[in-house]
Simulated assay, not measured.
Amino acid sequence: MKEEILFCKGGGCTAKLGAGILESVLGKLPRPTDANLIVGFESSDDAAVYRLTDDIAFVQTLDFFPPMVEDPYTFGQIAAANALSDVYAMGGEVKTALNIVCFPETMDLNILGKILQGGSEKVMEAGGSLAGGHSINDTDVKYGLSVTGIVHPDRIFRNNTCREGDLLILTKPLGVGIVCTADRIGESSEEAMEKAIRSMTTLNKYAAEVFRKYDVHACTDITGFGFLGHLMEMVGDKYGAEIDSIEVPYIREAVHYANEFYITSAGQKNRNHIGDRVLFKDVPFAMEEILFDPQTSGGLLVSLSSEDARAAISEIEALGMPCGIVGKITGSEDKRIIVK
């Protein structure tokens, strides 16, 4: 008799190691010295970028995690969209992808087939070629991609080069971690889960194509460290930010679930890691949790001049994506993130 294996135990980007743990480990590693490595791990950016010629650099990234939804095909789509997103966050175009698979040999192989189908379709939608992969027998299911893209060396989107006075655009709604947590214990509505899945399976390709028309000062995608964690990487120790919580797009049902404490441990790690640099002014508890909530296949957070931001947001809205101008970068006199 085969051992019954639970497919969805809770995964996605909530399964990532906390930022504090990663900092303590990565800080001890030697820094690369190759001058052609334009972007490495020192800035906690979304992907590595390596210059090949004066006109071409390749973007390299990988991401994988356990399932956060019960349907294997949907899980494959989400995991692929999440991994592909890092290339878009760097301003690049997807070229090739390799599957990363951890799967129990005792589980129905049709489940694996559906996961890979979902992933393959997202790679094709991205305009890339799925060129192979690697698999191991594991006690639990995990899936993702290693992705390679290209970008012009002078047109890379970096995560930490914002400028004072920039406006911030967020291209997807927050709250998917909270909604998925509620769904896992049977408390999420079908409508809320449908919104979360629609967001997680939407490629950031379309928003990135819009932003490539403008002078993007900084860009990142919102994943495991939540909106505030990734914004903190963007402002670093040079700037602060003011966030208008009313303008932040989020899944409305997430407010109720957060008030019922259907929240993740990863969200609390995010709060503990950066909470001392965040000042909330009359912001409800639920919105605090939504801003700390780890996102799986989250949207792009982009820092642009006021003029470019207002032009770009019109194009993003025309794509039918829940988005908004959510705040601005402030000067170095107050390096906190102030949420109103």
Results as ranks from 00 to 15, higher is better:
residue 103 F to L: 05
residue 158 R to P: 03
residue 151 V to K: 01
residue 152 H to N: 14
residue 181 T to Q: 14
residue 149 G to C: 08
residue 138 D to F: 02
residue 110 N to W: 06
residue 174 L to T: 14
residue 166 D to A: 00
residue 105 E to Q: 13
residue 157 F to A: 07
residue 141 V to H: 05
residue 162 C to S: 14
residue 174 L to W: 14
residue 177 G to S: 13
residue 108 D to Y: 03
residue 184 R to H: 09
residue 122 K to D: 05
residue 153 P to S: 12
residue 154 D to I: 03
residue 180 C to Y: 01
residue 156 I to S: 09
residue 132 G to R: 03
residue 180 C to A: 15
residue 184 R to A: 07
residue 135 S to Q: 11
residue 153 P to C: 12
residue 166 D to F: 02
residue 126 A to I: 07
residue 171 T to Q: 09
residue 106 T to M: 10
residue 106 T to E: 15
residue 183 D to F: 00
residue 130 L to R: 10
residue 178 I to T: 11
residue 135 S to Y: 03
residue 164 E to F: 02
residue 121 E to F: 01
residue 172 K to Y: 03
residue 118 G to T: 15
residue 106 T to K: 13
residue 142 K to N: 09
residue 146 S to H: 12
residue 146 S to I: 10
residue 159 N to S: 13
residue 107 M to H: 02
residue 157 F to K: 05
residue 133 G to D: 01
residue 102 C to G: 12
residue 109 L to R: 12
residue 113 G to E: 02
residue 133 G to R: 01
residue 180 C to H: 04
residue 161 T to M: 09
residue 117 Q to W: 07
residue 183 D to Y: 00
residue 123 V to L: 11
residue 132 G to Y: 06
residue 151 V to R: 00
residue 130 L to P: 09
residue 111 I to R: 10
residue 177 G to F: 06
residue 171 T to Y: 05
residue 167 L to C: 06
residue 135 S to K: 05
residue 110 N to Q: 13
residue 175 G to L: 13
residue 179 V to S: 09
residue 163 R to H: 13
residue 147 V to A: 01
residue 110 N to C: 09
residue 115 I to R: 01
residue 180 C to L: 04
residue 158 R to C: 10
residue 157 F to D: 08
residue 153 P to L: 09
residue 135 S to H: 06
residue 162 C to V: 11
residue 123 V to G: 13
residue 103 F to E: 05
residue 113 G to W: 00
residue 143 Y to H: 13
residue 122 K to I: 08
residue 149 G to M: 04
residue 173 P to K: 08
residue 178 I to D: 03
residue 164 E to T: 10
residue 121 E to L: 05
residue 173 P to F: 04
residue 142 K to S: 11
residue 139 T to L: 08
residue 171 T to K: 07
residue 150 I to P: 01
residue 126 A to Y: 08
residue 171 T to P: 08
residue 119 G to E: 12
residue 104 P to E: 05
residue 160 N to Y: 15
residue 132 G to F: 02
residue 110 N to F: 10
residue 139 T to G: 07
residue 117 Q to M: 13
residue 163 R to T: 06
residue 154 D to E: 15
residue 184 R to E: 06
residue 163 R to F: 09
residue 153 P to W: 06
residue 129 S to Y: 12
residue 182 A to V: 04
residue 143 Y to F: 15
residue 109 L to Q: 13
residue 172 K to F: 05
residue 109 L to D: 08
residue 117 Q to L: 15
residue 168 L to S: 08
residue 144 G to R: 00
residue 114 K to G: 04
residue 136 I to C: 01
residue 119 G to A: 14
residue 121 E to Q: 10
residue 166 D to M: 03
residue 167 L to N: 04
residue 123 V to I: 14
residue 172 K to V: 01
residue 111 I to N: 05
residue 132 G to T: 00
residue 172 K to L: 02
residue 175 G to V: 14
residue 163 R to L: 13
residue 150 I to Y: 10
residue 182 A to W: 02
residue 182 A to E: 03
residue 171 T to D: 11
residue 146 S to T: 12
residue 174 L to G: 11
residue 169 I to K: 08
residue 175 G to P: 13
residue 125 E to G: 10
residue 169 I to M: 10
residue 175 G to M: 14
residue 159 N to L: 12
residue 184 R to N: 10
residue 158 R to E: 11
residue 130 L to C: 05
residue 161 T to W: 03
residue 166 D to E: 04
residue 122 K to S: 06
residue 107 M to A: 04
residue 179 V to F: 09
residue 170 L to S: 11
residue 106 T to V: 15
